[in-house]
Simulated assay, not measured.
Amino acid sequence: MNDPWKNARRPSSRPPRATPLPPREGGTPPPPGRGNDELRLYGWNAVQALFERRPQALRKLYLAEALIPRLQPLLKWCVANRVGYRVVEEGDLNKLAATTHHEGVVADVLRAPMLELGEWLAGLPADKPALALWLDGVGNPHNFGAILRSAAHFGVAGLLLPPDSTLALSGAAARVAEGGAEAVPLVRLPALPQAMEALRAGGFGLAATLVEGGADLFKATLPARLVYVMGAEGEGMDRALAQTCDLQVSIPGSGAVESLNVASATAVLLSHWYAQR
């Protein structure tokens, strides 16, 4: 493997070198694993969205030489703020991202802080429409990324996670989200009764999303402030939780397949609420 830390040739389009990253033994890039407060992003849209919304979270940047002209604003920011970056070979980017789907750029960044429910509710504009997703058991990172992308597209105000949820943003989810991960905050819920009480006090209705047995989504009138409660990929919606919600809805279809997967269903549900606003 070419040594990613040796880069004697400097194309004229490259800005002055930023604060150097220390070489590792054998010249290999650092492993993909990060601490709990850091995340390894990859993919053009994921990294660009981070730069546009939270540039101060950037810690290290790795890029292919071909992206130097396109990443000039980011590289100049790195120089001005003494954030280390390196131009590396394709194989090194594959190892850094642990995938070939990096689109020539990898970044180590600080995670966005997860909000508490009360903090999130207090930050919402009062008496205005708002939509949120309660993810009850969603775990697949690609589904999570697709949900984030749809949520950003339809202006979802937050993704609500149960207190025992292990779901967290990963590099894979952020890449699939195509920048949406920076647009939608993650919110940690308290215990179920307290969470529902606080949401209802904030003017939200809760809609359980069922594969079957709920009211026809396309005939339902949805409240202006709404939380869709989404079930797990395999097991679906927890029935006990569904019964505690204010309404239960299902997406009608041809019956040729049993149901949509959770990411596809989310896009349909969000679009219906959005159309009614």
Rank of each mutant, 00 (worst) to 15 (best):
N81R: 15
V83N: 12
V83D: 12
Y85R: 05
V87R: 03
V87N: 05
V88N: 06
V88W: 05
E89N: 13
E89H: 13
E90R: 13
G91H: 09
G91N: 10
D92V: 12
D92G: 09
D92F: 04
K95H: 13
L96N: 03
A97E: 06
A98L: 01
A98E: 01
T99Q: 00
T100D: 15
T100E: 15
H101K: 14
H101M: 08
H101V: 08
E103P: 12
G104Q: 07
G104S: 09
G104M: 07
G104P: 11
G104N: 06
G104Y: 02
V105S: 03
V106P: 01
V106I: 03
V106D: 01
V106Y: 04
A107L: 11
A107Q: 13
D108I: 08
D108G: 04
D108W: 07
V109N: 00
L110E: 02
R111E: 05
P113G: 04
L115V: 01
G118V: 09
G118D: 15
G118I: 05
G118R: 09
E119F: 00
E119T: 12
W120D: 03
W120F: 09
W120P: 03
L121V: 09
L121I: 08
L121Y: 06
A122R: 10
A122I: 03
G123R: 10
G123K: 04
G123L: 02
P125I: 06
P125A: 07
A126V: 08
D127N: 07
D127W: 02
K128C: 00
P129M: 12
A130E: 01
A130Y: 00
L131Y: 01
L131D: 01
L131G: 00
L133R: 08
L133T: 09
L133I: 11
W134K: 08
W134N: 07
L135M: 15
D136G: 01
G137H: 07
G137K: 04
V138N: 13
V138H: 13
V138A: 13
G139E: 14
G139M: 12
N140P: 03
N140T: 06
H142T: 15
F144W: 10
G145Q: 11
G145Y: 13
G145D: 12
I147M: 15
I147P: 14
I147T: 11
S150Q: 12
S150Y: 11
S150C: 14
A151G: 12
A151F: 07
H153P: 03
H153G: 08
H153I: 00
G155M: 02
G155Y: 00
A157K: 01
A157E: 04
G158P: 03
L159I: 10
L159V: 10
L161S: 05
L161K: 06
L161I: 07
P162Y: 07
P162H: 10
P162Q: 11
P163A: 06
S165Q: 03
S165N: 06
S165D: 06
T166P: 14
L167R: 06
